[in-house]
Structures are given as structure tokens and as C-alpha cells.
Simulated scan of single mutants.
Amino acid sequence: MGTTQLESVPEPKYWHLKTVISEALDSEFQVGEILPNERELAARFGVARATLRQALEQLELEGRLQRRRGVGTTVAPPRVGVDVSTAQQRWPGAGDASWQPLDCATAPPPAAVLRLLEADTGPGADAVGSVFAVRRLRATNGQAVAAEQLYVPAASVPGLVPADFPAGPALARAVLHALERLPLEGQDRAVELGSARADDARELDRLPGSPVLVVTTRYLSGGRTAAVSVATYRADTCRLTFGDVGDLGIAS
């Protein structure tokens, strides 16, 4: 089987165009300014619109551009540092006013989340059972930067009686308060690049399919998984920082 020598692979045309446009953004445009339409840009740079779209998508991925519904493509401001430090004795959003509960319902978790909830149960252990799905939104400087789905098995908050609380934010706050009474033993966390689903895109003022950073956290208490958080962060405006290991930026 032959091998490809990387030195012999030509630079894609869109990649060179991305560099040219990036230089133009620095010298000719201001933050928030709307770019000309695709037809005008393609004519200016002498490229096909398909090549232009590839370059613009890459610049959006790198946080240089934003696509806004009803507005167009604008020059993005510098990314906002968002702390996602893994403080071992802190439950998700505890004492953090930037997280606002939106809703709560009892719903089956996605298969990937269910696997995490069942990861530390041994043979013959009880099934996960009923799960609370808490929906929250995180804002920084007045801008929504993350949408989170927090999955909490009812077994983690046995003293909670859902009927005692109205549906929606009140029930979400009750689940969170009950969870915070448990001793937190540790966390596992993973960060990956993904695409915005329709509900996340709507809440974050993004287009469906836009690049996002997905932070999945498993919270441990009593020797088992007490909750799983799946938080979707805007990749165009967020730079995730990890306070317990210094100011480490995660770029999309």
C-alpha cells in the first residue's frame, strides 16, 4: 500500500483564500460589520462560490466570523473566556448566577448518556429508572453562550416529590437543590467539537449545524454516577478555560 507524502499535497484553494480574507478582516472591517454577500465576495477574490463558502465556514469555525439569522455574516468579536474548571467539590452551576434553569421533565436519556449513568453499576444492579432532564441556559455579559441538558436519576434525589413543585423552572431548581445536598466525590469531563442541534441553535441564536463545543461531565457521588451534564457552548464566541490548571484555552 502506497503512502502519501504530506509535503507533496498542495494547499487547498479555500485554505489560501481563508488567509487572504482573514487579512482583509483585520485591515478593512470592524467588529460587528456585515460582510458583502457571497456573489460580491466571490467576484472580489476571483473564486467560485463553493470555494468561498469553504473559506467562510473555516473562519466561522475559528471564531473570526458569525452567521446571524436575519442579519448575515458579521465580523466576530474576540472570544469570551468561559470558566469550566473541574472543582471537585462543586455541583453543576452551584452558586453561579450565570446558569438559569429553563425547564425540567422526566424523560428517557439519550443512549450515550444512559451508558454513562450505567457505567459504574455492577451485575444485578438496579436499572437507572426514572431520570429528570433539567434544561438550563448560561449567559455571559448578557449573551447566551451555552445550553445544557442535565440528567439526574430520580434515585440520586430520593427525597424529591415532583408533585410538590410546579413544572418548569421551579421543578428544575428543586432538582438542583436536592442534588447539591449530596457529597460530590469527583467528576469526569470531556470536550469535543460538534454541530448545533435545532433546540440548542435556537436558544443560542445560532443556525442549526453551526460549530459548537460540547462539554460532557459525569458527576460522582456514593460510588456511582449521580448526574450527567451535556453542555453545548458557542464555538464562535467561547474560549473555554480550566481554572484548576491555569488559563488553558480550547479553540474550535
Rank of each mutant, 00 (worst) to 15 (best):
M1S: 15
M1H: 12
G2W: 12
L6W: 10
S8G: 04
S8T: 12
Y14K: 01
L17G: 01
A24P: 02
D26S: 15
S27P: 05
E28N: 06
E28F: 09
F29Y: 14
V31K: 04
E33G: 09
I34M: 08
I34C: 09
N37I: 08
E40Y: 08
E40V: 13
F45V: 12
F45L: 00
R49I: 15
T51Q: 12
L52F: 02
L52N: 07
R53T: 13
Q54S: 13
L56M: 05
L59E: 03
L61I: 02
G63F: 05
R69V: 07
T73R: 09
T74Q: 07
T74Y: 04
P77N: 04
V82D: 06
D83C: 03
D83G: 09
V84F: 08
V84D: 05
A87Y: 10
R90D: 07
W91G: 05
W91I: 03
G95S: 08
S98D: 12
Q100S: 09
D103S: 05
A105S: 14
T106K: 13
P108V: 06
A112F: 13
R115K: 14
E118N: 11
E118F: 00
T121Q: 15
P123G: 13
V128D: 03
G129D: 11
S130M: 13
V131N: 03
F132G: 07
V134D: 14
V134I: 10
R136H: 09
R138W: 00
T140V: 08
A147Y: 03
Y151N: 08
P153M: 06
P153Q: 06
L160Q: 03
G168Y: 11
P169T: 03
A170M: 07
E180A: 08
L184T: 01
G186Y: 08
D188H: 08
D188F: 13
A190Y: 07
V191N: 01
E192M: 14
R197C: 00
R197P: 04
A198L: 11
A198T: 11
E203C: 05
E203Y: 10
P211W: 01
V212P: 00
V215N: 00
T217H: 04
S221E: 08
A226Y: 00
A227K: 01
V230H: 00
T232Q: 01
Y233H: 13
T241K: 05
F242L: 06
D244H: 14
V245S: 01
G249K: 07
A251F: 10
A251T: 10
